[in-house]
Design a protein around this nucleic acid. Structure first.
Lengths: 334, 334
DNA sequence: CTCTCTCTTGAAAACGTTTACAGATACTAC
DNA sequence: GTAGTATCTGTAAACGTTTTCAAGAGAGAG
C-alpha cells in the first residue's frame, strides 16, 4: 500500500502538503494541487484510517451494541441508524454480542480502546465499566432502559402505550384479559417487561378490573413462546376473552397456536401485539398493536449521541418518542 | 486516558516491558509482572486499539457489508457470523449501506484504509475498487454471487434447490405452475433471481411442461410485492394451480393476498417459498420451502475469509452448502 | 528599490503502540 | 572465581497520519 510519503515523493512536495490537500482545509496553488492529485491517482493512494484516527484521536465511527440482530423489531431499528449518522459525517458499525459474555467483552474492550467515538446501547444490561465515571465513553441507551437510568436514554413510553392498548380492549367490552409478557421473577425481569406489565395493570386498576395472577403468562419474546402460551390458555378452566401481548412476535405465535387448537382470533379471543413489526400487517388476522416509530427513535438516538460527542449544549438526557395505536383485525368488540 | 507511558512510569519500567506484559509473549520476573499489573489497575489502563493496529498493520476485525439488515433471511444470517469469528480471535462489525451510494462509499473507503483485515460481501454488487488486483482486500462473497465470480464465494446451489422444489410440485400433480421471482429485465436481474428462475425452468423442461411467460411474475422480495402478485393472479383468465416463489417473504405476501381475495392456499393454489425464515413455520398455512442453513453458510464464509487473511493453504474458492427441502402446509396434491 | 503583508509550503514533533537490537543481570558449570 | 549461557529488560526506530511553527515566495504600496 502506498503511503502519504510515497505520494509526497512522487509529487515532489512535503507530506504536510499532501495532508492539506486531503483535508481540503487550506488552499494550495493550482499547480501543486494538480501534482498531488496526479500522484494520488497513479499510486491509487488511500489514507490509512488507523493512522488518521491515532493522530486526531477520533474515528468518526459510532458503534451499535446489540445482543441479537435477528428479532424483527431490532433489525428494523438497526436499519434506521446509518442515515442520520451519515448525514453528520459518522459511520455506524453494528456489533452483535450473541448473548455471549466473551464476545461482549471484546467489543467493550474495543470501545474502551476508542474504536468508536461513542456507542448506542440496545440492551439494558450496561457493562459496569461503561458506568465508571473516570473513563466513560459517550453513549445513549435505546429502548431497553432502566427506569432509574442516570445516562441518556431514548425510548417510547412503554407503560403508557401498554395502558392505552389495554384500555382499548376494555373499551371493546373485554374484562377478562390475560397478558403475555417476558420472563418475570425475582432473578430476572427485563425493563420492557416491567413497564409494559405496569401499564397493563394500570389500565385494569383504572377500570376496576381485578388482576388474576394465573392470567399472567410469561414467554421470552419468541414466536415459539407464543405458541406455548396458547396451549396454556386452551387448558384453562376459565378462558380470558382477550390477551395483551408484550410483543408482536409472541402475539403471532399465540394466534397461530390458538388456531391449531381450534380457537379463533378474534372471534373467540382478541389479541393485541406490541412493536408493529412488518409481519403484523400480514398475519391472519392482522395485528392490533402499538407502533414504535423506529426512524424517530434512531434519529433521536444518533443525533443525541453525536451532540454528546461534540459537546453541543442542547443535549437532552431522556427523550421520549411518541408511539401510535394501530387498529387491525386481531381484536373485536365483545 | 492513560497511555502505556503512564503505566511504565508508574511501574518504574520501560514501555517495552508493559507491552510485553500485555501481549504475554515473553516472560517477566514475578516482581516486575506484579508492578506492571498494579500500575495497569490503578490507572485502569486500556491499550489504544488504533495505535496497536497501526503498529501491527492488522486489526483483528472483519467487516460484513450488507445493503439492508432488516430482511428476515439476512438478519438471521448476520446473527451467525460472530461466533465462528470470535472463536478464531476476530471481531465482526456489520456495516449497512442502506442502498445509499454515499454511505456505501464511506464503508468501502474505510475498508481500503484497512479498517478491517477482510470483509464478507452480502450482495452481488461488488465495488469495482475491490476487484482491482493491485490493492485488493481479502473478502468472500456470500449468497448473492455472480455465476462467473473469480473471487471466493459461499452459497447454496440455488438453481438445484429451485429445480428440486418445483419438481416436488410437479410430483404432486401440478402442471400449471406460475413463478414469482425478483425484478428481471434487461437493465437488472439479481443473480439469485436468475439462478432460481433457471432452476424453475429446468424442472418444467425436464417434465415437458411449457413455460408461460405470462405466468412469470416479478416482485422485489418484499411481502408487499407478494400481496400485489396475488392481485395479478386473481385477475388471470386461466389461473395456475401452484406458484413457485423465490422467497418466503413474497410467498407469505402472496398467501395473504390470495386469502384477501377469497382464494385458499393450498386448496385452490399451492405455494412454495424459499429460505425458510422463522416466520415460515407460523403462517397459516405454514410454508413448504427450501431451507438455507445459515450457520453453515456463515461458518464457511468466516473460516474461509480468515484462511485467506492468514494465508492458509487450504482455501476453497467456491463453497456450496447443502440446502434442504422442507415440507409443510402450503402445498397439496392436485 | 525596499519594506511589509499575505499566502503557500516545509520541517519536525506528536499520537500510542510494537519490536529488533543491544545491554544487563542471574545462573550454571568448570 | 571466571567464563559462558540463558533470561529478562531497556533504547530507539517504526507504523502513517495531522498539525504547529517557521520560513519562503510573491505581491502591493510607498
Amino acid at each position: 500500500m502506498a503511503t502519504i510519503k510515497d505520494v509526497a515523493k512522487l509529487a515532489g512536495v512535503s507530506v504536510a502538503t499532501v495532508s492539506r490537500y486531503l483535508s481540503g482545509a487550506s488552499k494550495l496553488t493550482t499547480s501543486t494541487e494538480a501534482k498531488v492529485k496526479g500522484a494520488i491517482e497513479t499510486l491509487s493512494y488511500r489514507p490509512n484510517i488507523m493512522a488518521r484516527s491515532l493522530s486526531q484521536s477520533r474515528s468518526d465511527m459510532l458503534m451499535v451494541l446489540v445482543s441479537g440482530v435477528s428479532s424483527p423489531f431490532i433489525s428494523n431499528l438497526l436499519s434506521a441508524f446509518s442515515k442520520p449518522a451519515s448525514a453528520r459525517g459518522y459511520k455506524v458499525l453494528l456489533a452483535e454480542t450473541s448473548m455471549d459474555q466473551k464476545i461482549e467483552a471484546t467489543y467493550i474492550e474495543a470501545l474502551r480502546s476508542r474504536l468508536a467515538d461513542g456507542f448506542v446501547q440496545l440492551s439494558a444490561h450496561l457493562h459496569p465499566e461503561m458506568l465508571d465515571k473516570k473513563h466513560t465513553i459517550p453513549f445513549v441507551n435505546v429502548c431497553e432502559c432502566l427506569p432509574e437510568a442516570t445516562y441518556p436514554t431514548v425510548q417510547i413510553d412503554d407503560k403508557r402505550a401498554a395502558k392505552q392498548i389495554t384500555e382499548f380492549l376494555i373499551s371493546l367490552g373485554h374484562r377478562e384479559i390475560a397478558c403475555l409478557v417476558g420472563l418475570y421473577n425475582d432473578q430476572y425481569r427485563s425493563p420492557v417487561t416491567v413497564k409494559r406489565l405496569d401499564g397493563f395493570r394500570d389500565a385494569l386498576d383504572g377500570n376496576d378490573i381485578e388482576f388474576h395472577a394465573e392470567w399472567m403468562l410469561q414467554g421470552d419474546y419468541t414466536t415459539d413462546s407464543g405458541v406455548q402460551a396458547a396451549q396454556t390458555i386452551a387448558e384453562m378452566k376459565q378462558r380470558p376473552t382477550a390477551v395483551f401481548c408484550a410483543s408482536d412476535t409472541m402475539a403471532i405465535g399465540l394466534i397461530r397456536g390458538l388456531a391449531n387448537l381450534g380457537i379463533n382470533v378474534p372471534d373467540d379471543i382478541s389479541v393485541t401485539g406490541f412493536d408493529d413489526i412488518e409481519m403484523a400487517k400480514y398475519t391472519v388476522p392482522s395485528l392490533t398493536t402499538i407502533r414504535q416509530p423506529v426512524e424517530k427513535i434512531a434519529n433521536a438516538a444518533i443525533n443525541n449521541l453525536i451532540d454528546i460527542i461534540e459537546e453541543k449544549a442542547h443535549v437532552r438526557q431522556h427523550v421520549t418518542i411518541e408511539h401510535e395505536l394501530i387498529l387491525r383485525g386481531s381484536t373485536r368488540r365483545l
